[in-house]
């Protein structure tokens, strides 16, 4: 019976379609959202410079360890505290290890921890935020009050506490500690996004169709937050890298002989009066990466925000 009705409807569709043809004409607007966004991004000099600087750093930390003739872990006190030279562009440290390759390796650690923690923060934040915003009502209220309570506490003690609970510092505990300390903002922003998007008529239309909740969440809500998520990746990344550097600097970092930029800076701290380059170089690297990521985030925000429409 139902099938019959559907068949009738389809048949009458065909009939009327033949009758009407297309009236509206098909001239398309040339706009492509993605192309426009890319164009806006490329027109933003600071953002492009940031992106290039970011890439240079990534390339540096990736390829230097392959090309460098020095062993990053070989201790040779005869070469300790060499000033920057052609052979050792960044000089050597108190154990005579080449700082050029150690900076690159430390950068690998810093950036990898940064990315891993950012991904984790995104996952936790998106899950918590979208669930809270999507559910609404009492659950949302409770989840947000919990977040408010966490917000009230300072950021670093959280990470330190987490590391203390683990009792050991390695790559993964560091990622967990940083995630625990900094997922709140993402969760909040995601909740706000979902709540705004929920008011869109296309979500209402999906409800009117009888679509189930998971379809609405995964098909209609989350895909439309991609732009914000992308911006947040580049906003969170510098914060996380700085957090890791700080923890390492106060001695809660990856332990020797491995190093991150934070540990390198901390090693340089003991002799910063005599050999300032040992602390300056990793600090500059951290600053370089953080600034470039911020410029990229800023450019992405301008490029993806439809309100900043500018041809």
């Amino acid at each position: 019976m139902v099938v019959d009705r559907r068949a009738d409807f389809e048949a009458s569709l065909t009939r009327t379609a033949e009758l009407r043809g297309d009236q509206a004409g098909g001239a398309l607007q040339r706009a492509s959202l993605l192309r426009d966004a890319v164009h806006r991004f490329l027109k933003n000099r600071a953002a492009v410079a940031g992106a290039i600087a970011f890439l240079i750093m990534v390339v540096f930390v990736t390829i230097t360890p392959w090309l460098s003739p020095h062993d990053p872990y070989a201790i040779d006190f005869g070469k300790a505290y060499l000033r920057p030279s052609w052979d050792h562009p960044f000089g050597t440290d108190d154990f005579g290890r080449d700082l050029f390759i150690r900076t690159a390796l430390g950068g690998r650690v810093s950036i990898l921890i940064g990315f891993a923690a950012t991904v984790a923060i995104m996952l936790v934040g998106i899950l918590y935020g979208s669930l809270s915003g999507f559910a609404g009502g009492a659950l949302d209220n409770g989840m947000m009050r919990f977040l408010d309570a966490l917000y009230g506490l300072p950021y670093l003690p959280f990470a330190i506490l987490t590391l203390a609970i683990f009792g050991t510092v390695n790559f993964w505990t560091m990622v967990v500690a940083l995630t625990v300390a900094s997922w709140f903002t993402t969760a909040r922003v995601m909740r706000g996004q979902i709540i705004t998007l929920k008011e869109n008529d296309y979500v209402r239309a999906a409800n009117a169709l009888g679509a189930r909740w998971y379809r609405i969440l995964f098909r209609h809500l989350l895909p439309n937050t991609l732009g914000v998520i992308l911006i947040f990746v580049f906003l969170e990344l510098p914060g996380v890298i700085l957090g890791e550097a700080f923890l390492s600097f106060i001695g809660l970092g990856i332990s020797a002989p491995k190093a991150s930029w934070g540990t390198l800076a901390q090693e340089g701290y003991s002799s910063y009066l005599a050999y300032p380059y040992i602390i300056i170089i990793p600090s500059l690297c951290i600053g370089w990466l953080i600034l470039s990521a911020f410029f990229v985030a800023d450019g992405l925000r301008d490029a993806l925000d439809p309100r900043s429409q500018e041809a």
């Binding site: 389809e10 379609a17 297309d22 509206a24 004409g25 398309l28």
Partner: peptide
């Protein structure tokens, strides 16, 4: 067919 019925070119 639905698109054709409402006068929208289904090529798009």
């Amino acid at each position: 067919r639905l698109l054709e019925v409402v006068g929208f070119n289904p090529d798009f």
